[in-house]
């Protein structure tokens, strides 16, 4: 099948891209890595009036500054896997990206495109949520910073306003006594997650007591979701055995109504949430303490 015709613009700055978004409005789509958009174009599921290709915008790569790791929107998955800065500042993101697509997807796919696409099974979405990341949305009038939790609205839908462009992902640096884990279940390696769980555990100065814990999940809802903090807060100051992590996982699962699709039923996903959450928390805690 061949895509329907469209106009094409390749701005060389985000400002030009944003100007074009203002000009073309609903008729425009942003082309970043293209690994989700172009299949939809090929299958004629999306027939935009104009494609605004932002790949010509210079990309200076990830920067660590003031307790934050800043990833420009056009940071490609392959770059996340190879960048030593990201390896140190956001190892969970590296773990998550290992699960994303195949080598070709990782060579083209971008962190900004992935977040803006808002696939409910997004690994990068779960990692960014779990780490307490925020995105910078830039419009002609200026920029605003939005927590990733507020970015995702529903299935393939974000709070990016008309005329806005997602230009950066910012992730807070972790303290030295933290451990992360990213686990997922797929039917076939590199495909969409059935359930993915990102877990973060930060310890107190005693390097033993849990100070903060966070869990985010993909494949469990119409968008990547944070586990209810009132549940993950139960870990704070506690020494929980694996069996207790399982029951915590079950409590977290009970807060979701996961989708039912050709790969798995909702009830199977609930089982996975319980198991994978416990495994991720256990691994994050073990890593924090080691």
């Amino acid at each position: 099948m061949a895509s329907a015709p469209f106009e094409y613009l390749a701005p060389s700055t985000f400002a030009e891209a944003i100007e074009a978004l203002g000009e073309y409005g609903d008729a425009a789509v942003i082309l970043a890595g293209g690994q989700s958009l172009v299949p939809m174009l090929n299958l004629r599921l999306v027939q935009p009036g104009i494609v605004i290709d932002i790949n010509g915008v210079p990309n200076d790569g990830p920067v660590a500054n003031g307790g934050w790791l800043t990833l420009p929107a056009l940071t490609r998955h392959a770059e996340i896997l190879s960048d030593p800065l990201v390896a140190v500042a956001a190892p969970m993101l590296v773990d998550a990206v290992h699960h994303v697509g195949n080598v070709r997807v990782r060579n083209r796919g971008t962190v900004g495109g992935s977040l803006a696409h808002a696939d409910p099974t997004s690994e990068i979405g779960a990692a960014a949520l779990c780490l307490g990341g925020e995105v910078v949305l830039t419009a002609a009038s200026g920029s605003r910073t939005v927590p990733v939790d507020d970015l995702f609205v529903s299935y393939l839908t974000t709070s990016i306003a008309p005329g806005e462009l997602l230009t950066e992902l910012r992730l807070p640096a972790l303290n030295g006594r933290s451990g992360v884990s990213f686990v997922e279940m797929v039917r076939r390696t590199s495909d969409f997650a059935i359930v993915a769980v990102a877990a973060l555990v930060e310890l107190e100065a005693d390097a033993s007591t849990v100070k903060r814990a966070s869990v985010a999940l993909s494949g469990v809802s119409d968008r990547p979701r944070l586990a209810d903090s009132s549940l993950t807060d139960e870990l704070i100051g506690q020494e929980l055995p694996y069996a207790r992590l399982r029951s915590l996982g079950a409590e977290i699962a009970a807060r979701f109504e996961p989708p039912d699709d050709v790969h798995a039923s909702a009830s199977y996903r609930l089982r996975l949430i319980e198991v994978l959450t416990a495994r991720a928390l256990q691994q994050a805690m073990d890593r924090a303490r080691s």
């Binding site: 390749a10 082309l31 172009v38 392959a78 083209r108």
Partner: peptide, 18 residues
């Protein structure tokens, strides 16, 4: 699959203009 500047890419997902 083709290599673009040495890296594997899906030619079906890259516009020729790109």
């Amino acid at each position: 699959t083709v290599l673009i500047d040495g890296d594997p890419v899906s030619a079906c997902l890259l516009l020729a203009v790109q």
